[in-house]
Amino acid sequence: MPGRSKATRGDEERASLTIQPQGGFRGMVALSPVTGEGTPVEGFSLSPGEVRV
């Protein structure tokens, strides 16, 4: 998966993400699209929005 991806309005972008819990962590992990500065991206969504690890 690229470190960065760009999509314009109406486009669909697909990528894979692997989450490996460390230190015995178990629980829900929320996935939120943000800019490089940490600002939430409006009009963009991830599916699923959270996963259990």
Results as ranks from 00 to 15, higher is better:
residue 9 R to V: 03
residue 22 Q to V: 09
residue 18 T to W: 10
residue 4 R to T: 14
residue 27 G to V: 10
residue 26 R to L: 00
residue 28 M to C: 09
residue 27 G to P: 06
residue 24 G to T: 04
residue 20 Q to A: 14
residue 26 R to C: 01
residue 28 M to K: 15
residue 38 G to C: 05
residue 45 S to V: 12
residue 45 S to F: 05
residue 30 A to S: 09
residue 14 R to G: 01
residue 50 E to N: 11
residue 50 E to K: 07
residue 39 T to I: 15
residue 4 R to W: 11
residue 8 T to A: 00
residue 52 R to N: 08
residue 5 S to F: 08
residue 22 Q to H: 14
residue 34 V to M: 02
residue 36 G to I: 05
residue 45 S to N: 10
residue 36 G to Q: 15
residue 5 S to R: 09
residue 32 S to E: 05
residue 51 V to E: 13
residue 49 G to Q: 15
residue 7 A to L: 09
residue 8 T to G: 02
residue 45 S to L: 14
residue 31 L to G: 01
residue 17 L to D: 00
residue 44 F to G: 12
residue 4 R to G: 07
residue 46 L to M: 10
residue 29 V to C: 02
residue 8 T to K: 02
residue 15 A to I: 08
residue 35 T to P: 08
residue 49 G to A: 05
residue 25 F to I: 03
residue 41 V to F: 06
residue 1 M to T: 08
residue 52 R to H: 03
residue 20 Q to W: 06
residue 11 D to V: 00
residue 35 T to E: 12
residue 40 P to L: 14
residue 18 T to E: 05
residue 16 S to I: 03
residue 7 A to N: 11
residue 1 M to H: 09
residue 10 G to E: 02
residue 11 D to C: 00
residue 51 V to Y: 05
residue 19 I to L: 05
residue 14 R to Q: 02
residue 28 M to L: 06
residue 16 S to G: 14
residue 27 G to K: 13
residue 31 L to V: 12
residue 50 E to T: 13
residue 3 G to T: 04
residue 43 G to C: 12
residue 35 T to C: 13
residue 27 G to L: 12
residue 35 T to A: 08
residue 29 V to I: 13
residue 35 T to Q: 06
residue 42 E to F: 06
residue 10 G to L: 02
residue 47 S to N: 08
residue 35 T to Y: 10
residue 36 G to W: 11
residue 36 G to F: 12
residue 15 A to R: 06
residue 1 M to F: 11
residue 41 V to M: 04
residue 43 G to A: 07
residue 20 Q to T: 10
residue 30 A to H: 15
residue 44 F to I: 15
residue 8 T to S: 04
residue 12 E to A: 02
residue 9 R to G: 03
residue 48 P to Q: 14
residue 47 S to M: 04
residue 1 M to E: 14
residue 10 G to T: 08
residue 16 S to R: 11
residue 32 S to G: 04
residue 35 T to F: 03
residue 40 P to Y: 09
residue 48 P to N: 07
residue 39 T to F: 13
residue 15 A to F: 12
residue 32 S to M: 09
residue 28 M to P: 00
residue 48 P to A: 14
residue 4 R to I: 05
residue 11 D to Y: 01
residue 36 G to M: 04
residue 32 S to L: 06
residue 33 P to C: 08
residue 38 G to S: 12
residue 23 G to K: 09
residue 17 L to K: 07
residue 36 G to R: 07
residue 5 S to P: 06
residue 13 E to V: 01
residue 2 P to L: 02
residue 1 M to V: 15
residue 13 E to T: 00
residue 52 R to G: 11
residue 52 R to F: 07
residue 24 G to N: 05
residue 45 S to W: 15
residue 50 E to R: 11
residue 19 I to E: 11
residue 18 T to H: 06
residue 51 V to W: 03
residue 37 E to P: 11
residue 4 R to S: 13
residue 15 A to K: 10
residue 25 F to P: 00
residue 12 E to L: 02
residue 45 S to G: 13
residue 1 M to D: 07
residue 53 V to H: 02
residue 31 L to F: 01
residue 7 A to F: 05
residue 40 P to D: 14
residue 13 E to D: 08
residue 7 A to Y: 02
